[in-house]
Write a protein that binds this DNA or RNA. Structure first.
Lengths: 90, 90
DNA sequence: TAGATATTTAGAAATTTATCGAAACAACTA
DNA sequence: TAGTTGTTTCGATAAATTTCTAAATATCTA
C-alpha cells in the first residue's frame, strides 16, 4: 500500500533532500523551507506528500509545526532493495 | 547522477513489477509484455527508462532482445536507504 | 481583541509522464 | 527476396505532478 506512496515520494529530488535534512535533526516547516529556493506553499505540498507516504511525522508546537523522520517505511524499503542486491540467494 | 534516474524509474508500479519479474530470470521484451495489460510500445518505453537508469541490461539474441537486471545501482540504493534505517549511527 | 508570525489550503498554469495507434526497423524463414 | 515475427520509434492525447499567487487557518503577543 504505502510502499507505492513511498516510491512516489522518493522520486523527487526536493523531497529526498528534505529527508536528508531531517536525518540530522527535526525541523520546522520554515527551517526546512530556508534550504530551498521555492515558495512555502510548495514546500508544504512536498512535506504533505512525505507525510502521506508515512516517511515523516508532523507535530505542532505552538506556532511551529515540527517535522521528523518516520523510519518504519525505510525498513520496508530496505527489505525491498535487498531482494535485488542479493537476488541469487532469495 | 543516475540515482535520480533510478528513483524516477522506481516511482512507477509497472517498472517495479518488471524488475521483480527479471529477478527470477532474464526475459525478452515480449515475455515481459505478456505480464501486463498494456501495449508493446508502452512496455518498450518503460524498459527504456529502466535502461537509462542503469537498472537493466538489454542484449539482442537473434530476433529477441533479452532484458536482465543490472544490480550495481541497487547497491547505491541500498547505501542510501541504510542511512535512514540507521540514522542515529551515521 | 487586533496585529504579527508560521503554515496550510485552494485554484490555476506549466511541465512531465503514461499510454495509445500507426509506422519503421531488425532478424529470421521459406 | 518476400513475408513473418519481435521490438522500437514517432506523434498525439490524457493524466499526473510541480510550482505559483492569493487567501485561509492557527497560535502567540501586546
Amino acid at each position: 500500500m504505502s510502499m507505492n506512496h513511498a516510491f512516489k515520494a522518493l522520486s523527487d529530488p526536493t523531497r529526498r533532500k528534505m529527508l536528508d535534512l531531517l536525518r540530522e535533526k527535526d525541523m520546522t516547516a520554515g527551517e526546512i523551507a530556508e534550504h530551498f529556493a521555492m515558495t512555502k506553499p510548495s514546500i508544504s505540498h512536498h512535506l504533505n506528500l512525505l507525510k502521506q507516504a508515512e516517511m515523516v511525522f508532523d507535530e505542532r508546537k505552538g506556532q511551529n509545526i515540527y517535522y521528523s523522520l518516520n523510519t518504519t517505511v525505510f525498513q520496508d524499503l530496505l527489505k525491498w532493495v535487498i531482494q535485488f542486491h542479493a537476488k541469487e540467494e532469495s
